[in-house]
Design a protein around this nucleic acid. Structure first.
Lengths: 109, 109
DNA sequence: GCTTCATACCTAGTGACGCTAGGGTATAGA
DNA sequence: TCTATACCCTAGCGTCACTAGGTATGAAGC
């Protein structure tokens, strides 16, 4: 159910996930899967490039963390611009979903 | 507000438009613009290929109509498979929009 | 010790698809 | 004649989710 549907909305999902607190890539994937009840089971090849893209766009910042045990982790957090962007995207999504819902005559859940 | 957002959802919008009755390509574009209150102002280069794609997939059928005045028009209508597909896509959209809305904490309109 | 699995990161290439930019035909009005 | 509107089409581009492959660490099972 991911696939083409998510196009253009993945960034929103990632930003919203990181709004709840910084996390490294692998944890983001798990958080999305858990929080969506399994609806969004995203492969790493989807999420990692998206994180890089968002960082390049200035919406995320990353820090390498070297834990006492285990691999190094790259922890991402929302920047100020990321917070702002998320706000706009929230509004955009509301507008978009209302418009599409109207076409499909789907009474919003 | 079209752009990347619509990816994967354009077909739904077109199918839902044609559910209300057969129409030719140009009329589909206008119907979508009107019915969305201007939100979806789709260029021809978006809609025509989509119509062809949907016909190729068996969800639409087309007939050339030669009116007494004016150009020939290619009129599209939903096939049986198109109706069925629209039903499934409606359910898929409801599920998807609920999931994304939950992430964004957007109380559904 | 060795294998396997889970955790954690990465990227080159593919395919789908909306869009840009262009081209063509017909009718009506300035 | 020129422009505007209605109507159709397509080649190529850019974006982006995904596939498929790679690397590295540590814990658990045999």
């Amino acid at each position: 159910m991911n696939a083409e549907m998510l196009k253009g909305h993945l960034d929103n999902v990632i930003l919203a996930t990181l709004e709840r607190g910084a996390a490294h890539g692998y944890a983001v994937i798990e958080a999305i899967r858990r929080r969506s009840g399994g609806h969004f089971d995203l492969p790493e090849g989807t999420v990692y490039p998206a994180l890089h893209r968002l960082e390049l766009a200035g919406l995320l910042a990353s820090d390498w963390v070297d834990p006492p045990a285990g691999r190094r982790k790259r922890v991402y957090s929302l920047t100020r611009a990321g917070h702002d962007a998320l706000g706009e995207r929230r509004a955009g999504w509301a507008e978009f979903s209302r418009a599409v819902g109207a076409f499909l005559d789907v009474s919003p859940a």
